[in-house]
Design a protein around this nucleic acid. Structure first.
Length: 465
RNA sequence: GGCGCGGUAGCCAAGUGGUAAGGCGGAGGUCUGCAAAACCUCUAUUCGUGGGUUCGAUUCCCACCCGCGCCUCCA
């Protein structure tokens, strides 16, 4: 079965064919760097990481761009409030963002352009739109895109002009627009902006939000590219506006496949600070959950499904991962340093099932089912002594292939200290002498140093608690 | 009002016009000095409710109930 994705534009599953054979160009909307991202943001980034990794595992070379929005109302407002230059202020949260994605084992994209580094490109793009007559200047020097010049506007979101209800959220400056639905390409400087401003041919100001994604995607990926992702909330207006700007400027189709992930809720409720269910990654790490436990839970629900994020779910993730770790350790122990041989049937079947599931619009739930089926078959084989060291080594490589996509296996094992190993020795001696009370005491002592000791036919095994 | 998503076991969560994956939790068992781990068995006669189409529906259609998202800068 060929790789297929659900395209928001067509609202149906489509076979994936990149524009250029063997290479995928994708753009994903990144963070606005005015605070630490919350767990909902990371649902989107983890989904995009899964997509990225599966594309790579499918043999594609990748050019992936994620923008950093470092100039907008919030970044300006907060930096002014803290009395910091904008760049210094956003740097803090850009650093924080990279720390967070590292903790979640999210792979780095090829490019992370920050909006303020591409102002000339944005100005050039806005000028092109002005030249084509699809944008206009308002009295205060702001530039707006005229959506009546782009009849396709609303196609992605399935909204027609009549459906754009003039809502309560109409901003103060709306009277400057010719049509309430027009959106800003450039915002004329106002006092609220402090010293954040750039000179453009039509006056001083700063870019609107949408234009950065058009300018920077064009810069790195060209006028047309394969995949554009974001959260469902970006469908309208953000992505709709990107299409209007980009296609009006280039006359070419902007994006071939639009993939949007659903939101997450916490304990079945929308995350909000007032409900006390609003978490940053740091909050959860502080509670003792690991990055990979959080990643696992964010990953385990299909991306188009609302994900229910719970503490209980994190504990379930912890238990599931412990089982995978244990299996991995068993295989490693069995394999020793032997070169991988032929793959056991259950391992190649597991890999095939996993790939097929992921090809089907990233059905990770089914993919994980393939992993656990594999795990059970493998453990059974190990219990029965039916797996050769070469077979175990081969199975280990299959597990590594799955984890190239999932990214949840524990890093290479940490060795216990010599004093812990000495306690294990003492305990073995006690056991040999059938001094069970002493043996149990030593086990507790080892546990107090952070290690679980498990007796097996091959002798005692240590596991990090 | 418009557009759209969802309601599957205690919890999380796939799925298909042909009789319910997987994970966590729980119960029992094998193994073990005891544990742990692993494995085995069990844990939804049923997929929000009521109709309809069909030989057959959780899956398609209609209605209804409930929850949720978007409708101008929120992943």
């Amino acid at each position: 079965m060929a790789l297929q994705f659900y395209n928001t534009m067509s609202r149906s599953l489509e076979e994936f064919r990149p524009m250029e054979a063997g290479r995928v160009r994708m753009y994903t909307c990144g963070p606005t760097v005015y605070n630490r991202a919350h767990i909902g943001n990371f649902r989107a980034y983890v989904f995009e990481d899964l997509l990225r990794r599966h594309l790579k595992a499918s043999g594609y070379a990748l050019t992936h761009v994620m923008n950093l929005t470092d100039v907008d109302d919030k970044t300006i407002r907060t930096s002014l409030a803290e009395g910091l230059p904008l760049k210094d202020f956003t740097k803090r949260y850009i650093d924080g963002f990279f720390e967070d994605i590292a903790a979640l084992n999210i792979e780095r994209a090829e490019h992370y352009p920050a909006a303020t580094d591409y102002i000339p490109e944005m100005i050039e793009l806005i000028q092109a739109l002005l030249d084509k007559g699809v944008a206009y200047a308002s009295e205060d020097g702001s530039i707006y895109f005229s959506i009546e010049k782009f009849p396709e506007y609303g196609r992605l979101a399935h909204l027609d002009r009549a459906g754009l209800r003039p809502g309560a959220r109409v901003a103060q400056d709306e009277f400057e627009k010719e049509d309430a639905a027009d959106f800003a390409l450039w915002k004329a400087w106002s006092e609220k902006d402090g010293d954040v401003a750039w000179d453009a041919p039509w006056g001083r100001g700063r870019p609107g939000w949408h234009i950065e994604c058009s300018a920077m995607s064009m810069k790195y990926l060209g006028p047309s590219f394969d995949i554009h992702c974001g959260g469902v909330d970006n469908i309208f207006p953000h992505h709709e506006c990107e299409i209007a700007q980009s296609e009006s400027a280039t006359g070419k189709p902007f994006v071939r496949y639009w993939l949007h992930c659903a939101h997450l809720v916490v304990d079945g409720k929308k995350m909000s600070k007032s409900l006390g269910n609003f978490f940053t990654l740091g909050d959860l790490l502080g509670e003792g959950f690991s990055g990979r436990e959080i990643r696992y839970q964010l990953l385990a629900t299909h991306y188009r499904q609302t994900l229910n994020f719970t503490r209980e779910g994190l504990l379930a993730a912890r238990a599931a991962l412990a089982r995978v770790d244990e299996f991995s350790d068993r295989l490693r122990q069995r394999a020793g340093s032997v070169v991988a041989g032929e793959r056991p049937e259950w391992a190649s079947a597991g890999l095939a099932a996993f790939r097929a599931a992921m090809d089907h619009d990233l059905n990770v739930s089914e993919g994980l089912a393939a992993l656990f089926d594999m795990l059970r078959a493998g453990n059974k084989g190990l219990d029965g002594g039916e797996i050769s060291p070469a077979g175990a080594a081969a199975a280990l490589s299959v597990l590594a292939e799955l984890d190239n996509v999932l990214g949840v296996l524990k890093p290479a094992g940490v060795e216990a200290d010599a004093d812990v190993l000495a306690l294990v020795e003492q305990r073995q001696a006690a056991r040999a002498a059938k001094q069970w009370a002493e043996s149990d005491r030593l086990r507790d002592e080892i546990a107090s140093r952070g290690w679980l000791v498990q007796d097996s036919a091959q002798g005692p095994k240590l596991r990090r608690k």
